[in-house]
Design a binder for these strands. Structure first.
Lengths: 199, 199
DNA sequence: GGTGCAGTTCACGCGGTCTTGAACTATATG
DNA sequence: CATATAGTTCAAGACCGCGTGAACTGCACC
């Protein structure tokens, strides 16, 4: 997460900002792919994870690692790792086309799963940890004698605060999943399912 | 935002992980301060911004830049910049104690404001931009002749997706502000108000 | 077995961010 | 005015994550 804040703003610019030279991507594809990359980076992932997913999603039919490599101008190794991550999160699928020997990758329709999933991960790995830390601090503080009671109260408030932020976060995850999930549900049918079976 | 994800996990560890040598911070303070630092970093800010805010909040009474510098073991320049940021976001307040010449800084109670505020910023600076990009892509795509209609449909879905994530985000901001804000409302009264006036 | 290609792993280097520390400004004090 | 202390700014450097590219594995086909 970078300088998205107020710092050094120049909000009016937004040039179409020609995306870096893409292999043979159509301009509109390039823009869209880049947009996904930005969103994804914004959410705390690697931008290239987003770009790969975006490409796969736009194309509909499964691509090989080599194709991705060419289209997005990435290195072999890089693509391999990115695909591993995405597959691990369940946002792409590795498919073997019948008479063919290479692996192909297809986008799962719910990018949302990616976001929610990892937001959940982060939460699990983190919020609980924070809680532990705060209660530890509280334990220590209580053990220490002669502290002004207001200071303890401040600590407690802090813990309460943390819990409420956590609650809000959970809520967010839940709503975003339902909301967006519902919309996608209406979509997931056509081209993707077909393209998987064809060829 | 870093490696909070699954990668290289070792979820069971969580050693109390002695926070870096603090000036004269009580251990429990150190832990709490560090916790806030982590949360804040997690949300995409600088960890030290969180630590400073945490310290000020815990102490209740306004501190000078020098004290912060010592307690958190930061550089003069760094503290200056951190304080500027925090003040700019309205999460701390610069106060001048009557017979004294130096500035002191006190934590505003709503850390939430920090989060929501910047989440809003990010949204403004970003989501709108993404939307613009996607519709631009769509324009280009439509201008291009002879595209399979499903590919266009995918692009449209993408835009819809973006919009729904956006909606969920907005909702999140709103709820989190109400939720946590309400809780804080119940608190903002005692010690802080008092400590501001005293001395 | 050998050749070639798909795929994985990993040490290194680039690029970006954060912090430092020194130079500088501002403001009070003798 | 000289001196000291609070506060700001900024270039230089530390630091860290990411992607690269080369070495390696695995597998198919000859």
């Amino acid at each position: 997460m970078k300088g998205y804040l107020w710092t050094g703003g120049d909000p009016g610019s937004h040039k179409p900002v020609a995306p870096p030279e893409h292999g043979r991507l159509a301009p509109w594809e390039a823009i869209a792919v880049e947009a996904v990359g930005n969103v994804i980076e914004f959410w705390g992932f690697k931008r290239n994870q987003g770009r790969v997913w975006g490409l796969l999603y736009l194309r509909g039919e499964p691509l090989t690692a080599g194709e991705i490599e060419r289209e997005l101008d990435l290195s072999k190794g890089g693509v391999s790792m990115l695909l591993r991550d995405l597959e691990h999160w369940g946002v792409i699928q590795r498919v073997r086309v019948p008479q063919d020997t290479v692996w192909r990758y297809a986008a799962e329709t719910d990018l949302v799963r990616m976001v929610t999933h990892v937001v959940e991960e982060r939460e699990a790995a983190f919020v609980t940890r924070i809680r532990a830390d705060l209660s530890e601090a509280r334990r220590l503080a209580e053990a220490t004698g002669g502290l002004p009671p207001e200071r303890l109260r401040r600590l407690e408030r802090m813990a309460v605060l943390a819990e409420h932020v956590e609650r809000a976060l959970r809520l967010f995850i839940k709503t975003s999943r339902l909301d967006v999930g519902g919309v996608l549900g209406a979509f997931r049918d056509g081209a993707l399912a077909r393209s998987k079976g064809e060829r």
